[in-house]
Each structure stands twice: as structure tokens, then as C-alpha cells.
Design a binder for these strands. Structure first.
Lengths: 214, 214
DNA sequence: ACCTGAACACCGTTCAAGT
DNA sequence: ACCTGAACACCGTTCAAGT
């Protein structure tokens, strides 16, 4: 910690401190003031490196994508379905690694060189699958948008338990306004295995890709 | 405005003021203090109705879902594909109506009675499509997660223009690290029609649903 | 060139009073 | 029962100095 404070001030050191703060105390704890004390400097010293709070948050996206794109993202000897599965799993891993910063991925297009390389990796997999050139960009967005949306739903609580008001639910059931819930009650009472659900979703999307072939 | 301030204080009035603030000045402008002055009261008076800032934001989700679920969401005389298309379009409409508050939908599970009715509507469409009971909840999440993720990407800027550094991109192209981008250049330079792209995505997912039939 | 310090206009929330 | 006012510990950012 004291060692970290002593390393020379740099954009990277600032962003890493921001990401660390987000992971440890939540995205709301990432303030210019908190990041500044983390790197051992006054808040105003940060502005020379990151310009503004908004730019700092954009920078967190770069850092996350940087570690999300290991060198193992390579085409050599891996079929396109396994490559897409790898991308899908990577999105979820990233959400678990950075649960509160993850949402920032929805704020900016893929413009950094790491981001573009990642998109290219997906493009190549779709091309290898036989998807016509004209449909590749759309299917890339379809696939990654689903993966990011699923991961965000998990870490942000949309898929969470959710304390349903039992009284209200019984009233709705009695009023017959949720007939499908009644029919599916057996399945809705079971705990969901989110890993297998995601896997099944990805397999469905891979089938979609295979169907989009010429 | 003066009329609005005069109406009796209530949870609903407070939430509507919050949503109005979000739409007009962004989610960041929704502070306890701003909402309070909007309804003509002192910040601390809100706490009796909404408990905390977090609860206030949860309440915004209820209000959004409430207007998202018009009475026209009915099964009568509409085939399951059209019903799912309606849900998909509704998600995007909602994002455009409440561009900054929309992201809150990822924060909480569907627990209010409006939310549950909406989920039931999708369940019923999937059942009518012939999807086996055991797969209906998963496919509901697959479908809505994609729609919400797409809409969020649009309003939050992930699908935005994105000022790519031309220098960096040329360097990547020269280095051969983005081969698929080079091959797809013709398509990547075209402006995207986000309406038709979403429509095509939804049709692909409907095909997936049809395939999931017994 | 790089950093500090004071100041401005904000936050959410606690607590003790008021009516 | 419902609301206010002062206070506490925070925000991002500006501007003028310091070295």
C-alpha cells in the first residue's frame, strides 16, 4: 500500500486504483477524492491524467477489457463454437471479477484497441461458422449483447431472489391474472442453476449462428 | 407546476417527480433534495414515503413498468409471435421514454404485480408456441434479457458512433491484428439502421422459440 | 511541469424540534 | 402524524498559488 503510493503517478496507476476501489467498496465509492488518496495525491492532481470523473470511468472499461483479452484469445486450433463459448464465459467471468464496474461496459462503444481485437475475434468465429459477411456485424452484436445483458442481470440483481409479496402473489393467482405462473408453478419453485442456464442459452445462440449459414 | 406542488404528498407523487427529473435532467439529477423541492417539501419529508434513496430508485422501476404494461397486453386474437414482438418493441419504447432511468431495470427482479403480469404474458406466448413447460422460464429470460440489453446498449451509448482513433485503427490493420475488420470493411463503414437490426434479431429469436417446440 | 489549498455548489442521512 | 432546520460527512470542479 505504501509501496503503491510511492510509484510514480500515471494514468494507469490511477485507473487501477479506481478499479480496485470499485471492486472493494462498490462503484459509488469511486470518487475523485477517494482515488486521489488511494494514489497518495490531492484530488486536483488527477485531472492532468484523466480529465474528468466521466473519463476516469471510461478508463475503467479499458482496464477491464485489457485483462479480459488474454493472449489465449487465439484462433489456432479451436473451432468457432468453442471460441464463441470462450467469449461468452469471459463476459461472465469479468462480471464476477468486477461486479459493480461491469455496468460501465454498456456506456461506451468498443473503440480501444483491445476492444476492437475482441470484436474481431468474434467476427472471425462467425465468418468461420459460415455466416455471410453482411450478417456478421449484426450477429456479433446479438451474441455479445445477450452475454453482457445476462451477466449484468446476474451481478446487478435482476436475476436475484426477489422478496415477492406472498399476499399479493396469492391475490393475483386467485384473480386469474397470472395463469401461466400457475401452470408453471412446479418449475418456478425450483432454484435456478445460473451456470447451466447460461450454457443452454449460449448453445441456443450457437444453433442460431449455424442456421445463419449460407 | 404550482398546481403539482399543491397536490397532497404521496409515494406516487414523489416517484413521478423522480421519474420526471430523470427524463428531463438525467438520472444523476434525481437527488433527494431535487425531488423534495419538486414536490414542494423539505428533503427529510420524503423519508416517510420512500425510506431511502435506494428505495426511491426501486420505485422508479415500478412506475416505468406500470406504464409499460398497457391494457393492450392481452392474449385475445393475437398469435404468439406478434405478442413477443410487442414485448420486444415495448422494451425499446420504454428505453426511449426513460433513457437514463431505464438502466434501473437491471437492478431488481420482477416482483411487483405489474412486472409479474408482464412475465406471465411472455410465459403464455411461449406456452402457446409449444415450448415445453420446463423450458419456458429460461426462454423468457433469454428473450427479455436480450431485449433489455439491446435497448440499454442503444440509450447508454454502447452502440454509439464512438470516435475511434483512426491512427490506432490503421496501425492495427497494418499489423494484421484485426483481419476480420478488414474483410468486413464494406459493411462496417455503412450506417446501421438500429430499428431493422433489432427487428431481425427478434425474428431470429422467434425462430429459436419455434425450434424449441416439442 | 506538476501539484496543492481554499472555495463553491452540491450530495444522503441523523437527530432534535416543532406543530 | 407529519414536517422542518441544523448539522455531519461527503461529492466534482474552478481558480489562484506554489515549487
Amino acid at each position: 500500500m505504501t509501496d503503491l503510493e510511492r510509484q510514480p503517478l500515471s494514468r494507469t496507476a490511477i485507473l487501477d486504483a479506481g478499479l480496485r476501489l470499485a471492486d472493494e467498496r462498490g462503484l459509488a465509492a469511486v470518487s475523485m477524492r477517494a482515488v486521489a488518496t488511494e494514489v497518495g495525491v490531492t484530488p486536483m492532481a488527477l485531472y492532468a491524467y484523466v480529465g474528468s470523473k466521466a473519463e476516469l470511468l471510461d478508463g475503467l472499461v479499458d482496464r477491464m477489457l485489457g485483462e479480459y483479452l488474454p493472449e489465449s484469445f487465439t484462433v489456432a486450433g479451436i473451432g468457432w463454437p468453442d471460441r464463441l463459448r470462450r467469449v461468452a464465459d469471459g463476459a461472465r467471468d469479468m462480471a464476477r471479477r468486477h461486479p459493480t464496474a461491469f455496468t460501465l461496459l454498456f456506456d461506451r462503444p468498443a473503440v480501444t484497441s483491445d476492444a476492437v481485437r475482441l470484436v474481431d475475434f468474434v467476427y472471425q468465429a462467425l465468418l468461420d461458422a459460415g455466416v455471410p459477411d453482411a450478417h456478421v456485424p449484426r450477429l456479433e452484436r446479438l451474441f455479445t449483447t445477450f452475454c453482457l445483458g445476462y451477466a449484468l442481470s446476474e451481478v446487478n440483481g435482476r436475476f436475484g431472489a426477489g422478496t415477492v409479496d406472498p399476499r399479493g402473489r396469492r391475490a393475483q393467482a386467485a384473480a386469474g391474472s397470472v395463469p401461466a405462473h400457475l401452470r408453471l408453478a412446479t418449475y418456478l419453485d425450483q432454484a435456478v442453476d445460473w451456470d447451466s442456464e447460461f450454457e443452454a442459452d449460449v448453445e441456443d445462440l450457437l444453433a442460431l449462428v449455424a442456421r445463419a449459414t449460407v
